[in-house]
Design a protein around this nucleic acid. Structure first.
Lengths: 227, 227
DNA sequence: GAAATAGTGTCTTTGAGACAATATATG
DNA sequence: CATATATTGTCTCAAAGACACTATTTC
């Protein structure tokens, strides 16, 4: 029988839940574990922290190394530290969640050990990672309703229909165009331009109003520094 | 050097922001540092984690060891991990926040190195602890408005006036009794008893309805397990 | 019955949501 | 001009807040 919690050491790691939004809904990149425990299973990108690297920087590095992308939104999710969450070892994981732009995510290289999955149809993941993703999804859906994070999925300009589709895809329910417009128009800037080419009335193009913070994190706010 | 639980050269610690509510408003217990760095200055209660102790359990231990109290509410606040937050050392702190009942807090022993301070008039604290308390205060005020945490400051039964005073003290603004009643009555249980003895109409005594969770933390919810 | 707080009634305003109606590109 | 979405208008309903009013206990 192997020793449970054998070491007198605690490993500190950072993992990141990365969300992209494609035509099939929310997607998450996972990496295949190439060593024990859970060898061969899918897991969140992450790794032990560097001594002279900020937590958020570590999460950003996770993101870049697995997807080749920079995030438009990155926030700490939670610190998971149950004693038995990794077999035979005490691992405390600071988990971040990130949003990336849909168009960029499409370009992201996928090597054999990195693969994108539909966020609500994940396989059984290593460690407690299913639970972590569930929580991240909950936070994303929650936060979408009272903040401006939806913009992080889009490019610099967008139509109201595009923005509305983000809401519909994430919340998984229809949103009334007229009411949606009234709610969000005040926090947007009209670029004056329109998106022509479709065979119907061309919609206005808007820009995100950066004078309104994406989210209100109080004293941790704007810069998203952690400490 | 003491047997600190460390990974490579990163120290992992747990600290706790403890709130009690007295007649003078929100109060927080701090401990005086008895060694460098910041020797002599006040700091949040906390310490390095034990290898076989859950993070939340560690926070609960902090709480008990500094105040002699058990918390009625305990939640993870944030994980602070900036590279330079402790001079000459890399310390990552998982910070919790707790609420304790006002009547119990009054009884809490205060030794020479533990002292209660008004939450909005703190001295200059060690490390980044002022910033941490600011964030905890912001979270408390925020969460008071959309959840049921106010109950954690009170005993098993209470009048609506008492509950309302919690809101007023924390939010620092007057709350209309009539509207307050209508908003919260539905989430309370009328014990059928009244609080007599004052020289006016005796108010009903209510109980907290435990079928309604104190807060909705989604997948982390009810048990407040961290992983 | 005076004092003091408990508790109720009611009006106004605000915002969300349902849904009808109008506007304007392209083919 | 038909089509398809953009955009505006309007109605209803629910919740929040201001505030007047009534109720009931103790002294």
């Amino acid at each position: 029988m192997s020793t449970v919690v054998a070491t007198h050491e605690v490993t500190l790691a950072v993992s990141t839940v990365i969300f992209a939004l494609g035509s099939e809904g929310l997607r998450i990149p996972l990496v295949r574990r190439i060593r024990q425990p859970f060898e061969g299973q899918w897991a969140l990108p992450g790794g032990p922290i560097e001594v002279s690297e900020a937590l958020e920087a570590s999460a950003g590095r996770n993101l870049f190394e697995t997807t080749g992308l920079r995030s438009t939104y990155l926030e700490q999710l939670y610190c998971f530290g149950d004693v038995d969450r990794a077999p035979g070892e005490r691992v405390v994981s600071v988990v971040y969640w990130a949003l990336v732009r849909s168009d960029e995510a499409a370009l992201a290289a996928v090597d054999e050990n990195v693969q994108w999955f539909a966020a609500d149809e994940l396989p059984e993941l290593a460690f407690d990672h299913n639970r972590i993703v569930d929580y991240a999804l909950w936070r994303l859906r929650n936060k979408l309703e009272y903040s401006q994070i939806a913009h992080a999925f889009l490019g610099p300009t967008f139509t109201l229909a595009e923005l509305r589709e983000v809401y519909q895809a994430v919340l998984q329910r229809p949103v009334d165009p007229a009411n949606f417009r009234r709610q969000l128009e005040k926090s947007l800037i009209d670029t004056g331009e329109r998106l022509t080419g479709a065979r119907h009335r061309p919609p206005r193009l808007y820009r995100y109003d950066s004078s309104v913070a994406l989210t209100d994190n109080g004293p941790l706010s704007t810069t998203q520094k952690e400490a």
